[in-house]
Design a binder for these strands. Structure first.
Lengths: 194, 194
DNA sequence: TGTACATCAGTGAACGCGCGTTCACTGATGTAC
DNA sequence: TGTACATCAGTGAACGCGCGTTCACTGATGTAC
C-alpha cells in the first residue's frame, strides 16, 4: 500500500517540524502559524494538537532541530579546513555565518526570546552541542589571562554580531563589504603547542 | 485652559511614539499594537491613522527615536570616560551594552528585519548618526591593514554579538559571567600618536 | 471684535481576517484471546 | 486465522480573540474679511 490517503499520517511529528522550517525560510518568523504548517503537511489544522502542547512547544521543537542543523554546518565546515588551529577556527566560523545566511529566519528563531524563555530538555541538549563545538575549537588556543571561557565568549560575540549585522544588506557598514574575510575581524590568538 | 479633555490632542504624533516605546519595554515587540498604543495615549484606536501611514510607519518612527536614544547613551558614556582612546572606546561600548540591556525590546526593534526593509529618510539619518559615533571612536586607533572600516566592523560585531548573546541569561556561555568586563573581549589596538 | 467658512484631527461603529484552541466524532491500528 | 475491543491519531465545525483598516461623522482650530 503506497498511497498516502490514509487517515493516519504515520510520521506527523517530524513532518510538522520540517514543514515549519520550510515556512520559516519562505515567510519569516511572523509568517509562521500552526495552521499554515498543518496545511503544508496536508493535515487538518487541529492535528498538531495531538503532537505538541500548543504553538510554543512546536516552535521549541523547530528550534531544537535548528540547533542540530546549525551544529552540523559548523562541524562540516570545520572538518573540511586545514589542520592548524586558526584554519579550524575560521572553518567553524564560516559554518556559523553560512547557517545564519542560508537559514536567516531559523537563525533568528533559535536565538529568539520566545524560545529561550521556554525551558525544554531537548532544546537545552541541542543548543549545548553547538556551544561545545565552539568551545572545543577555541580550546585549540592558549586561554586568555581573563579565564578559560573568555576566548569562546569573544569569538562567539564576534561571529554572532557579524552574522546579525550582515544579515540585512541595509546595514550601512557593510555596503561595499559583501565578502569581508573572517581574517579581517578575527583577532590573533596563540595556538597551543602541545 | 489646562484640562486635557479637548477633542484635539495637540501633540499626538510624538505621544504615540513615546507610548509605543513604553509598551515595547513592558510587553516586547509581539505585544506592540496600534490599538494598545492608542489606548495608552487615551485616544481612539483610529486616531493614529491621521499621523502614520499604517502600522509599519509607526514602527519605523519608533525605531528612529530608538536610534536617537541609542546614540545619546553611547555618546554620554563615551564623554564620561577618560581621555585616552581605549577608555573612550570602552565608554562607547558600555553605552552600547547599556542601551541593549535597558531597552531590550527597542534594541531588538531597531535591528529588526521589518524595520530595515522599510526605507525611510529619517530612520536612515538617525541610524547613520549611531554609526558615525562608532566610526569616529574607532578612528582614534591606527587603521587595520585590512582597510579603514575594518576596525569599526570588528568592534561593532563584537559588541553587538555580546549584547545579543547576553540579552537573555539563559545563554549557557554567560552563566557565571554576569559582569564580564569589556576589557576581557576587546582586542588590543594601537592608538594613533598624532 | 465678529462672522463665515475651510481645514484639521479627532470619534466610534463596523468590517474582514487569521489565529490558537476546543470538542465530539470517527477511521485506523494494535493487541488479547 | 478470526473476532472483540481499547487506544491512537486524525477530521471538521465552531469559538472567541485581537488585530489593522475604513468610513461617515463632528467638534476644534485657524484664517479671511
Amino acid at each position: 500500500m503506497t498511497t498516502q490517503t490514509r487517515h493516519h499520517h504515520g510520521n506527523l511529528r517530524p513532518a510538522l517540524i520540517s514543514a515549519g522550517i520550510d515556512i520559516l525560510e519562505a515567510e519569516g518568523i511572523s509568517g509562521l502559524s500552526l495552521r499554515k504548517i498543518a496545511v503544508r503537511v496536508g493535515v487538518s489544522h487541529a492535528a498538531p494538537a495531538h503532537h505538541f502542547d500548543g504553538k510554543i512547544a512546536l516552535l521549541v521543537a523547530i528550534a531544537a532541530e535548528g540547533f542540530l542543523i546549525f551544529s552540523q554546518m559548523m562541524e562540516e565546515s570545520r572538518d573540511k579546513a586545514a589542520a592548524d588551529p586558526r584554519s579550524k577556527l575560521i572553518g567553524l566560523c564560516q559554518g556559523y555565518l553560512g547557517f545564519a545566511a542560508q537559514h536567516e529566519a531559523l537563525f533568528e528563531l533559535i536565538f529568539s526570546t520566545d524560545v529561550k524563555n521556554h525551558a525544554d530538555e531537548n532544546l537545552e541538549k541541542c543548543s549545548m552541542q553547538a556551544f561545545q563545538l565552539l568551545q572545543e575549537t577555541c580550546d585549540l588556543f592558549e586561554p586568555s589571562p581573563h579565564g578559560n571561557r573568555s576566548n569562546a565568549i569573544m569569538i562567539w560575540s564576534l561571529v554572532h554580531g557579524y552574522a546579525c549585522l550582515r544579515a540585512n544588506n541595509k546595514m550601512v557598514l557593510f555596503e561595499n563589504e559583501t565578502n569581508t574575510p573572517l581574517e579581517m575581524i578575527l583577532p590573533q590568538m596563540t595556538p597551543k603547542t602541545t
